[in-house]
Amino acid sequence: MAVYEQSYRSYTGALTPVWSRFLIIPRYAYEVVFKSKLFVGFFALCFAMPFVGLIMIYLKHNLGALQIFGVSAAEIAKNIPINHTFFYRGLWLQGALSFLLVLLVGPALVAPDLRNNGLALYLSRPFNRSEYVLGKMSVLLILLSAITWVPGMLLFAFQASLEKGWLGENLALGGSILLGSWVWILFLSLSALAVSAWVKWKPVARLTLMAFFFVLMGFGGTINQSLDVKWGMLFSPWHVIGSIWWSLFSMGPTDDFPAAGAAWVSLIAGGLLCLFLLYRRIRAYEVVR
């Protein structure tokens, strides 16, 4: 149909399934996000370490390839252990990069909609608040998945394919990569959305998010020092997730992190707080009392 016709004509075609509509939000968001060269560069950098990991696993099983550099095969094999520590360190690295990625993308998700009264437009359609939050969250969930558990599981599968019997011995490691990544991804995404919903200005939302992760760490440290306790670090998201990862990857006893059980409780409480903040804020209109 020609676009120059200027009479009102109604749409009578088929509609898309209701369940799939939340995915429209990430599709539109990615069009904007990937226009930024800074973001594209950073996103590409996020795959550097998984790539290095891939090479390490390959070399461990193809030692002949390194002998052209005159390096002893036995020495290499000893120095490239592909075990729980390898994946734990990989997750820490990718987890830190995830945080930076969330700093870049997260604050721009909800704040502009609130500032420009966009929520009334979303919510006047057959599209509810949960779908809106899920749509906005999936922008981060998909991006963060791409740099955490997806490469982690690929490396895991690659290693399993190269070494007979390794999969059977390390099956739980796959579960740790998945669960550890998803816990961090969900917590990061919820925190970013909650901050973005309460601070309407993007740069301030970015600073607030940084403060949430680093100032709380300092606060927890201060509590530990001044009260001579260990639970202060339960306020620090880094220590909380560190404790959870440490226990998931069975890294052994440590004094660096709070107890894993308490860390889970702290993380769940933090997640619920973020959900509550989102529930309070994600409304078509604010009622002034």
């Binding site: 904007v32 057959p126 599209f127």
Partner: peptide
């Protein structure tokens, strides 16, 4: 409510748009 909203078009009073 979902069916009701599917029937409706809404032009709000205040400025309302999606940024960028």
């Amino acid at each position: 409510l979902r069916e009701v909203r599917a029937l409706l078009g809404y032009m709000p009073e205040n400025d309302a748009f999606i940024a960028g």
